[in-house]
Design a binder for these strands. Sequence first.
RNA 1: GGCGGGUUACCCGAGUGGCCAAAGGGGGCUGACUGUAAAUCAGCUGGCAACGCCUACGGGGGUUCGAAUCCCUCACCCGCCA
Length: 420
Amino acid sequence: MSDVLDELQWRGLVAQTTDVEALRAALGAAPVTLYCGFDPTAPSLHIGNLVQILTVRRLQLAGHKPLALVGGATGLIGDPKMVGERTLNPPDVVADWVDRIRRQIEPLLDFDGPAAARMVNNLEWTAPMSAIDFLRDVGKHYRLGTMLAKDTVARRLNSEQGISFTEFSYQILQGMDYLELHRRYGASLQTGGNDQWGNLLSGVELIRKVEQASVHALTTPLITKADGTKFGKTETGTIWLDPELTSPYAFYQFWLNADDADVTGYLKIFTFRTRDEIGELERAVEERPAARAAQRALAYDVTALVHGAAAADKVVAASAALFGRGDLHDLDEPTTAAAVAELPTAAGSAGDLLADLFAATGVVTSKAAARRAIAEGGASVNNVKITDEAAALEAGDLLHGRWAVLRRGKRTLAVVDAGR
RNA sequence: GGCGGGUUACCCGAGUGGCCAAAGGGGGCUGACUGUAAAUCAGCUGGCAACGCCUACGGGGGUUCGAAUCCCUCACCCGCCA
């Protein structure tokens, strides 16, 4: 890996930079201290944030020093979204989210060694600042014209909902962060998603004005899907890194279901596989798409990265058992138990209405939806299609006298546990 | 502060007294075809103890046998004027 920037470009991770050649020179000359921020707007990071973390990790592997900023301050204000004003979250909630997010980032970066990462929180320098200091020392450097011209701000001003002063001010806070990290740790590169470009520039310009220093910014592209739909969402919602919010099984399944057209791009972005390995997998998709070798590699790698190799092995085995060709009754008890442990579960027993059980496990959202699914031929028990809306669970349906696997459509699964 | 326009289901958007659980589109779900993929075609898409009942057209109140539709009021958004 001679040139990290080449590496990032090859992986499709560079959308915009302040000055590519200046950045390339800086990254080639000496270890650069870089920063990337994560705002606590939810109790967990999601796979969109993973793009940022892994980009930072790649830079770290090339010898550069990351500062992972968790926005205890910016999270209290809210980055303006394209559509609609955010609801302010209570400070204690944000503080809790800060902790959770820190713990998610920690295992993904290296906090020891010569390029050790450091965790920072912008609440530390933002909270003690008075309104007067803010307006005199920082506000004076900001031109309203520039601020109003920012994409998101302009869009919001033209929207029906407008924008509050609070959200409008967000870009200044983020600019202050970069300045502060530049002063404290010599940060000279900020990375982020392309939607953050304006916010990154805010800091670059502030540093230029206050410190007469030229620093860099680099954004990663918005991850897109070949079919044009939004990346990172499923019918169930966002794919979170927190195993409580998105089970490792569901996480693995998400990646396994990547489109052929998207999978190579995802391998570049979300795994540490080499160019050769990815080229190999790309060929495999072309030659034997049904084998989905690339999807399996992708799903395994990302799951192992986020949830650990042990968890990844478990969900691979569970997926094999549940989607295997054989009769579920033929699986031995330990295999069944392990597979079933990965699925959403509801208690039930022989005699219960299947429609009620489908609703109870969350495979469908309501009993009416369960009846609909059965009527449409989209519901099965242990991979056997059911057709009678009024059918009940039978004792013979229970695998090893205990479990019944409910399925809606091809890949939405849950289990009924009749206990022991 | 004044005047005008607006707020409808997951989203966009029709609907100006009963035929409205609410057109149409998007999205989503299911089926067929497949590979737990994409594309395509078809059906479905508020809930429940279900020939009925409940919830739902920004919040609250009213008129009426009957309201998403009319009136009052509150909130928020947009525009013009000050």
